[in-house]
Design a protein around this nucleic acid. Sequence first.
DNA 1: GTGAAAGCGCTAACAT
DNA 2: ATGTTAGCGCTTTCAC
Lengths: 354, 354
Amino acid sequence: MVRRQARATSFDVAALAGVSQPVVSRAFTPNSRIAPETRERVLEAARKLNYVPNSIASSLTTKRTNIVALILGNLANPFYVHVLHAFSKRMQAEGRQLLVFTVDPGADSDEAILHVLKYQVDGVILTAAQLSTRMISICHDRGIPIVLFNRYIPGSDASGVRCDNAGGGRLIAEAFLAAGAKTFAMITGDPKGTTSQDRARGFVERLLEEGIKRSDIIEVEGQSSYEGAASAALSIFKDKSRPKPDALFGINDIMAMGAIDALRSRLGLSIPNDLMVGSFDDIPEARRAPYQLTTVRQPIDRMVEETLSILHLDEPDLPIERGIDRPIQGRLIWRNTIPVPPAYRFEKTDESGS
Amino acid sequence: MVRRQARATSFDVAALAGVSQPVVSRAFTPNSRIAPETRERVLEAARKLNYVPNSIASSLTTKRTNIVALILGNLANPFYVHVLHAFSKRMQAEGRQLLVFTVDPGADSDEAILHVLKYQVDGVILTAAQLSTRMISICHDRGIPIVLFNRYIPGSDASGVRCDNAGGGRLIAEAFLAAGAKTFAMITGDPKGTTSQDRARGFVERLLEEGIKRSDIIEVEGQSSYEGAASAALSIFKDKSRPKPDALFGINDIMAMGAIDALRSRLGLSIPNDLMVGSFDDIPEARRAPYQLTTVRQPIDRMVEETLSILHLDEPDLPIERGIDRPIQGRLIWRNTIPVPPAYRFEKTDESGS
DNA sequence: GTGAAAGCGCTAACAT
DNA sequence: ATGTTAGCGCTTTCAC
């Protein structure tokens, strides 16, 4: 019994059904001109032969593969797992497939894109780090739309969908201030990434407005990871030269979790009594009992919708939408890592909506 | 500026390089008969035109797409995220791509397979739940190898790679016994899945050997999720009709984490003083400070290798390997959720190897 | 509503 | 080493 057995083709089905081959094609194409009874006969023959249309072959003429590339950077951050899941469900529902690439965090995606192009994907969604503007032009020139998810390249032709990161950073600062924090620290992620920069910028801006000096806001890099944030947090509290902060902004949830775990287990700190913590993303893990993070929720579903609307996969003939930067408002979810000031008390309804 | 711009084809490149079209094909095919200087000239022309070979078109003749389908069930369990990552890296390294499908946990994968077949994938890796044997034959008949990852269908034609789950269950039982546990409970996952069944079976078997009565081992379903395990754990400890267990086996790490978080936060239990906990998988989260799980490590890398060797994507002409069940030994990782008995003390070297 | 013919972009066989 | 020819399985005109 040897592999590479003959697969039934539309010709086989046509022969069995007693029709010409194009009729088989029509039988599998919705809204095509074919008599209902003919279609039924063809489908019956197809069933008998276990015939499955070859979409590789049809792509050759239609110039559509119904494949969308998703380039992922940091799977160690559950946020991107949820992004993957959201896109996957959405794509499958519309009969498209996801070709998934993983790129090492920090590495550039140019090579991934090159591989993607070979497969004539209908669109590219990129969540990973660096991408040269040359690659963006190459995609655009070939008619392949590309959307950056949760990042943007200022002044470039690439379109992007993201959370309003600066605004979210302000929300956390606001919450800290309302809870009476006086001294601040933040653990940032990829220093080259706009996402981390923007969140930090919004956070700092709001504090500066309150008259807090920039030099009094401690800033340590946490390499966008649980482990990186854990050691960053310890370094902040072990630094004898500076006063201890009473509020810590973790640039994302997974880093806040790393910081909290380290500070509790190594230094015995209690959250929020010894230190309040705010973060960003609202991944499902954020609501688990040990964390109960007060965080800014990224509205993934809406971001996915926006991404798809920019890609407009259903209207391939429309021009590619270039240079769009679509920031979407995040929402502060009050949980337990920042004491809720009396004025906000009524807002602490956290597990609803998105 | 209109989309669907002409992409350069091998004819365009041929014309620019002053050669015939097949020569372009050869220039992009390693080990093909072409003069080095001709190849260079062609590649130069290709570069000028941003030419990228169309693998969709080449698949039509070669009958190889270099696409492998990965069907994922439960992305909420980080174990499968790591599986995805491992396969993705491995596939990319050999120039193959992953077409990812997500299937709701519990749902069957037949429809996913049908979609997969349209794309003429070179192989299928399935981590999700149910799959009819009919689908397996359809794949096999078309020459598409399929491997079940971390599951198997007894007596079927499908091949599978998995951890030695029963053996792992025994390891946990053994550890509990060595630590002096007397009363036991387990939180199981999908009751229809062999993985959960086997782990539980091995666990119970070992306890029975010690003369413990089956009816004295509490068993509650935890729906394979963090949340499900959390409520399962609470139900065990709220049941006044039975004695409290002093050892709890979580069928996987994520469920053990859910159980631990619930028991600590809701009932104030201390691990391992009030209750020892053992589990399975050794996901990276298992070593985090709040958990420090004693667990059975699944050797993902070896399992991935075995999967690929069964698929033998490089030798498509070999017959498909059917009905293989390849169990791979797991290894007990001692951390802090089971007190280490003196005799084992030296073994507590956990963060090495796989 | 159906069939005949051409062609998508490439690789494989053969001829030179 | 290179060119010529055919054909992978489908969709798309265009006749009928």
